[in-house]
Nucleic acid binder design. Structure first.
Lengths: 168, 168
DNA sequence: ATAAAGTTTCAATAATTTTTGAAAGTTTAA
DNA sequence: TTAAACTTTCAAAAATTATTGAAACTTTAT
């Protein structure tokens, strides 16, 4: 396979994966493009390579910066802004984990904790079932949270070394 | 908080979480409803409690069965079909992991492996960067895949015991 | 065979999400 | 201060995704 075709295929696959996981397809594609670009790119170049509008490119780039996945770069003597992606895949994974934990897991944990305080009749099967399910989900979510917490602090080699060693 | 209010809040929160993770909101809500219901419910009851149409209920229930999260139940002497959810949260987590691995991770791994075979000029930074990124992502995805594989086979207590012990 | 009870399908509609593009805003250099 | 270069905003349009509802279909009992 040729490089140009491979790049397109990667961008498409990354975009699809993103959309399946609740990440805007264009955002995933812009990230993919920057991931495989040795040099920082301008908004113009991104617009052109992905055939997207200026507005879309601008918003998407802002979002990616908000996720901590890309950064602006200013080249000496140039007006234009350049964008480049952190190429360290472990940093990327941690950054995504960190943001989704904060934006999605934590709010749900908060609600689950509130829901744990519900009171009712211990003889009512509706009540008993509700409480049990909430308790179990809460416990699982807590374990996921703790694991992510560890992942955020860990070095890649240490993390996978430990996890995979346990599982051999 | 009262049970009725708590149930609504749980269904809403579960629906939101689902939609953030690429799962149809209604599907997550129906699942939530069945999770906290001690008895199996009919399509009618689900339609009514969630204010959704018959068609939507039917499709959603079919999807949930496809995901292995709920089952049909037939009560003796009754024509109606009843639906109930597996209440074991670890089974649920494994089932979701299993399906998403199959539907999303595996296709991406296949593409990444194809993309690893790309050939080009080792002096071309475009080529070198592409190859490196693909290789790194491939490795990470492989580790995720192996960990999920282990999770699918594991008992809950063993899995979290091992993972959290490593991280203490 | 018929009809009642229940289930499934799917084209049309609605809701949501994403994208556009042009206008407004900002920065820099002369 | 002006104007060119560039960036940002956001209302409107487009695209996508989810939902409805009525007709078709299936099953069961009589």
């Amino acid at each position: 396979m040729e490089l140009a075709a491979a790049k397109l295929k990667f961008i498409e696959a990354w975009g699809k994966l993103g959309s399946e996981w609740g990440i805007n397809r264009t955002m995933a594609q812009v990230h993919a493009l920057l991931l495989v670009s040795p040099e920082a790119l301008t908004t113009e170049e991104i617009m052109e390579q992905l055939s997207i509008s200026r507005g879309n490119a601008n918003m998407t780039l802002r979002d990616l910066i908000g996720w901590g996945l890309i950064e602006k770069q200013h080249k000496a003597g140039e007006r234009k802004e350049y964008f480049f992606a952190d190429k360290d895949v472990w940093n990327i994974a941690r950054q995504v984990a960190k943001e989704r934990k904060k934006r999605e897991l934590e709010p749900v944990l908060k609600i689950l904790n509130e829901l744990s305080t519900v009171n009712g009749d211990e003889k009512d099967p509706e009540f008993v079932t509700f409480k049990k399910s909430i308790k179990d989900i809460n416990k699982l979510a807590g374990n996921v949270d703790k694991t992510l917490e560890t992942m955020l602090k860990a070095e890649e080699s240490w993390f996978w070394g430990s996890v995979l060693k346990v599982f051999k």
